[in-house]
Amino acid sequence: MNPHFEISLAGSESSFACAADDTILRAGLRQGLGLAYECNTGACGSCKFDLLEGEVFDLYPEASGLRAKEREKGKRLACQCVPKADCRIKIRTGDLYRSMVRPARFRARLISYRALTPDMGLFSFKSACPAEFAAGQYAMLTPAAGAMTRAYSMSNTENAEGVWEFIIRAVPGGAVSPLFGGLPEGHEVEIDGPFGVAYFRPQIDRPVVGIAGGSGLAPVLSIMHAAGMDESFTRDLHVFYGGRGPADIPDIPGLLGDAAAKVSCHPAVSMPELAQQQGWQGDVGFVHEFLPEKLKQPLADFEYYMAGPPAMIEAVVRMLVVEHKVAMEQIHFDRFF
């Protein structure tokens, strides 16, 4: 039987049980607590905490989410620490981080694969349990026993059939993504989720803009599916997607299916030489630069959901907030590095 340890929160009466093979962060989220986090992979630093009592094992001591001075002061990352004893910790909390669907660990088998671009594909897995998550969330995937775990966003929407769809890009030199390319149908993976705070908020009465690059298309597709198929949501929907060259642009309307009729798609490529070589007739430049031209209202009138390379996210946020006075509350993204 897997042992459990008690984790208590300083300054609060809250405590929770954490299995010896679970991280402090995920165990707390599973039990309905709002522990601060974003990436779940040790990169963003949102889940840093102080260990006041007890002992933990650090799965990733070199994680970039902590600066050297923070490590010297004993800071740790809840997403990378498993308990070795009962612990008392000090960590930031908030209702924003409380999961609408409590994350769980389960097995799922690969049922199909479809190439979308030369280095990106759509993987569909099926679990015995329903696929419950909010549009825009992600899960942690472990492709095989002993393999590293990575975060990937779902590109579909929740369903009773237990189908989980992920867009995975093969990263040169990556430790995990190349493994997916060799999986045969029927192969089982572990899924742990859902996680993420950049989920679709249909109650907000603003037109929606999704901005993505690379496999960041997945959560944007999920949000557009959810909004496009919701008859009560009548605001405009826009997808801005950027790639280096034409070969990097997938068939976004085809991926949207029935929701495509309600979504305006604005692809762009960033490398003029590739655009010229491959006969690209569309926009050339960084995709966010086309927002003022394509959107006919002030940019502050929209709700934004973004996913993609960190440099893209930083550039988009800077443009929206500094140049167009968009409130940060209208911009949603989970930081990945």
Rank of each mutant, 00 (worst) to 15 (best):
H4T: 15
L9I: 15
S12T: 07
S15D: 05
S15M: 04
C18R: 04
A19P: 00
L25M: 07
L25I: 01
G28C: 06
L29I: 05
L29S: 01
Q31C: 09
E38W: 02
C44I: 05
G45Q: 10
S46R: 12
S46E: 14
K48C: 03
D50L: 15
L52G: 12
L52R: 14
G54T: 02
E55A: 15
E55H: 15
V56L: 10
S64G: 15
K69Q: 15
K69L: 14
G74R: 11
R76A: 10
C81Y: 04
P83Q: 03
P83T: 04
C87E: 00
C87A: 09
R88M: 09
G94M: 08
D95T: 13
L96W: 03
R105T: 14
R109I: 09
Y113D: 02
Y113T: 15
A115C: 12
T117A: 04
P118E: 09
G121M: 06
G121Q: 08
L122Y: 04
S127C: 07
A128K: 11
P130S: 07
P130F: 00
E132R: 13
F133K: 06
G136N: 00
P143Q: 05
A151V: 07
M154F: 13
S155F: 00
T157A: 05
G162I: 08
V163A: 00
W164L: 13
W164Y: 15
F166M: 07
F166E: 02
I167C: 07
I168E: 00
V171Q: 08
S177L: 07
G182A: 12
L183R: 07
P184F: 01
E188Y: 12
D192S: 14
V197W: 03
R201N: 13
V208M: 11
G210S: 03
A212P: 05
G213M: 11
G216M: 12
L217W: 06
A218I: 02
L221M: 00
L221R: 02
L221A: 00
M224V: 09
M224P: 01
F233E: 05
R244L: 13
R244K: 14
D248R: 05
I249Q: 07
L256I: 02
K262M: 10
V263E: 04
S264H: 12
C265E: 00
C265F: 13
A268R: 11
A268P: 01
Q278T: 02
G279K: 09
W280N: 01
G282W: 03
G282T: 03
V287D: 03
H288N: 11
P292T: 10
K294R: 15
K294W: 03
K296D: 14
L299M: 06
F302T: 08
Y305F: 05
M312Q: 03
I313C: 05
I313A: 10
E314I: 10
A315E: 08
V317Y: 13
V317K: 15
L320C: 01
L320G: 07
H324N: 08
V326S: 09
Q330S: 14
I331K: 02
F336W: 12
F336M: 10
F337D: 14
